[in-house]
Each structure stands twice: as structure tokens, then as C-alpha cells.
Design a protein around this nucleic acid. Sequence first.
DNA 1: GACCAGGTGTCCG
DNA 2: CGGACACCTGGT
Length: 274
Amino acid sequence: MQEIKMSIPNFDIRQIAASGQCFRINPHPEEPDTFTVIAYGRYLKIRQKAGSREVSFFCSADDFKNLWWDYFDIGTDYAGIIQSIDPEDQYLTAAAQKGSGIRILRQQLWEVMVSFIISQNNNIPRIKHCIELLCELCGTSWQEDGRTVYAFPDAKRLYLTDLSPAKLGYREKYIKTLAENVWKGKEDLSELIFSRSPYSYVENRLKSIYGVGPKVANCIMLFGLHRLESFPVDTWMHKIIEEKYNGVFPVERYRDYAGVIQQYIFNYAINESD
DNA sequence: GACCAGGTGTCCG
DNA sequence: CGGACACCTGGT
């Protein structure tokens, strides 16, 4: 455990935590400017003063190199993406300005699938609450900073545990079915991770899962498979496309990274709504 | 009590 | 294929 401090462009942990793509990055209960991250069964403390480029990672050098560097997508050039935005598009320009510290995290596919199935017809505070309840119910626990922390539970745990205390509502049966199929090998996630299959093939595979429709499938592709061309359209996006783009968004202009653009717009809508 | 929240399954034409 | 409608739960 050590402090690894570095300057990173287009990186703002507050924006990332509030962007709606992840549900388990939270302010540290005691330390200011500090957030906790739990992912891939690991815990990270990360510190960044508001508006600063200097970021401190509290972890081993190995974890930083092998896990967190990739997790936060530090190798991708977000400045280039922002520069490519149509300067005539005032709304998107403003959205990208406000969200210029957002990165599309490389989260664990399994966690993303479960989290975004829970997200349907739900609100973000309750989504986060449900996920924490799941982790406390049956996630592996260990001690960090004198507190108990919980990993995201794997398919076996979710299948074998009574999930009713997590208050998932009608989504519970979707999670149960998926957990059972993954645990019993009927649903092979590694095939999705390593495949370079065409976009529509992967999308159809995901949509064949009980409880996964077009919107959740696109979120899984963007946040769980890092398919940056994925462009999820939810109620927020739909409303903005209607109001600001006359019902048609120029996705093809940004086709290789439309998901990043989507995230700027979505983040702007939920956090800076005017 | 009605309505809403990062939608989807089901049914029906 | 497209449009209604119900749906757990917790908050306003």
C-alpha cells in the first residue's frame, strides 16, 4: 500500500462518481476529497482536490499497473474526443465542457449486467442502495481502514442466496435467472468478453437475456464491454434528442465513440439540468 | 392517492 | 413490427 500520485488530463473522480455509469464509487466517510472504489474484488482509496489534475491512488504498485490504470481507462485520449465535437453544437459543447473529467470505466461485465438490470424503471439513489444491499447480503467481505467492505457477489452467491432483503422488486427474477444460467454454464460471459463479434451479434445475445432490453443491452456494451460506439437511449436521452436535436442525433459523426458523447449528454442532463 | 424513476415482458392488432 | 399496459419499491 502506497500513495501513487500523478497528473492525469480529463480525469475528475467527482464527475466519474456522479456520471451514472457506476454505482459503487462513493465519498470516503471521513477523509475530504477522497473516494472509495470497490471493483474486481479490490478496494481503492483515491484522492483528488476539486478542479485539480493531481490524483492520488492509495494501492500497491502492482494493483495500480494491473488493475486501476485500465479500470479508469487512463490510456484513452479523451481530449481528442472532445476536440472532435461539432463547434456549432452548443448543447454538446457545453455538456462536454461540464463532463470533461469523465472516463468510461472498464468495469467487470458481471457487475454491469446485474447493476443495469436493476436500473430499469428505477432511480439512481435506489439503484445504489439495492446494489449495496446485494453486496452486504452475499458479497465477500474484508477489512479496509478499520471498516468492513464488500465485494460484488458472483453468480453462484446470487443464485444461492435469498435476495428478497435487497428489495429488487420484480427485477429479482431477472437476476435469479441470469445468475443461475451463468453459474450453471448455460450463459458464457467470457465468450462475450473475448469475442470481437459484430456489434449487432453481441447486442442480440444480450437482448436474449431475460430482463435485458435494448437500453440495458447498450449500457452493458458500453460500460461492461467497453464498446465505445454503443449509444444507449434512455428517457433522459430521448427527451434531450427531442428538445435539442429535433428528434435526430448525429450519431454517425461520432460513431466510434458515440458512447462517450452519450455520457457527456446524460451527465449534463442529470447533474446540471437547466 | 397519483405520479415518477437510466425499461422490459407480454399481449394484441 | 408497433402500441398499450402492468410492474416492485420508495420518494415527492
